[in-house]
């Protein structure tokens, strides 16, 4: 059973004693004529009394101890940052990390630049040496081979002499020495 739509709100406000005088008068007139709304009002009043009389739900006995415990934990958490004020490690971690990384990068750059120059000079020296000595050796080798072909000699003594002269030629780099070695070979061959 629903109340007349026009008076539904007034009926609720009336039950709460929140209706102004004029509205109250108008509603009373209506209630005298409408048993449906009168019944509805009575039901609302009974409902309200039931709701008011609902037995209270009491919190369990653990409620306060648990709350105390939570408050204690909160206090402990709150006091923690004050202790770290002396050594705010958690704040320094990113700063220290970035610092260490940049130091590492700088160190690597500084370390690599002289290394490369040393290496390049070393390589240049080796290159020049390898360019110089093989040429000499090759020239020497070709000379001795020419001499062998010309003389038609191919004995063990000649080979020993040849290797000996080659070894010597390796250690000498100037052309005067080379000439002296060549003349010696010729002397041995003849």
């Amino acid at each position: 059973m629903a109340p007349c739509q026009r008076f539904a709100q007034d009926l609720s406000d009336f039950a709460d004693n929140e209706l102004d005088k004029i509205s109250k008068g108008r509603l009373t007139d209506h209630l005298n004529k409408c048993p449906n709304c009168a019944k509805y009002l009575k039901q609302i009043q009974v409902l309200r009394s039931y709701l008011r009389e609902l037995s209270p739900i009491k919190p369990t006995q653990e409620f306060v101890p648990i709350l105390r415990d939570r408050m204690r934990k909160f206090q402990q958490e709150k006091s923690r940052p004050e202790r770290t004020m002396f050594f705010p490690g958690h704040r320094l971690v990113p700063v220290l990390g970035i610092g260490a990384l940049s130091l590492l990068v700088v160190f690597l750059l500084v370390d690599q630049s002289p290394k490369s120059s040393v290496q390049s000079t070393r390589m240049a020296v080796q290159k020049s040496q390898s360019v110089e000595s093989p040429n000499n050796a090759l020239a020497l080798e070709s000379d001795t081979q020419d001499q062998k072909v010309a003389s038609g000699q191919s004995g063990f003594a000649a080979q020993v002499a040849e290797s000996d002269t080659l070894a010597r030629a390796d250690s000498t780099s100037n052309s005067q020495d080379l000439d002296a070695v060549r003349s010696r070979i010729r002397a041995v061959n003849y």
Binding site: A2, A8, Q9, L11, S12, I44
Partner: peptide, 15 residues
């Protein structure tokens, strides 16, 4: 006020 009224109407219907 309007919500109280509508809530009560629903409860009244159910109970």
């Amino acid at each position: 006020k309007s919500r109280v009224n509508r809530g009560r109407q629903r409860l009244q219907k159910k109970l």
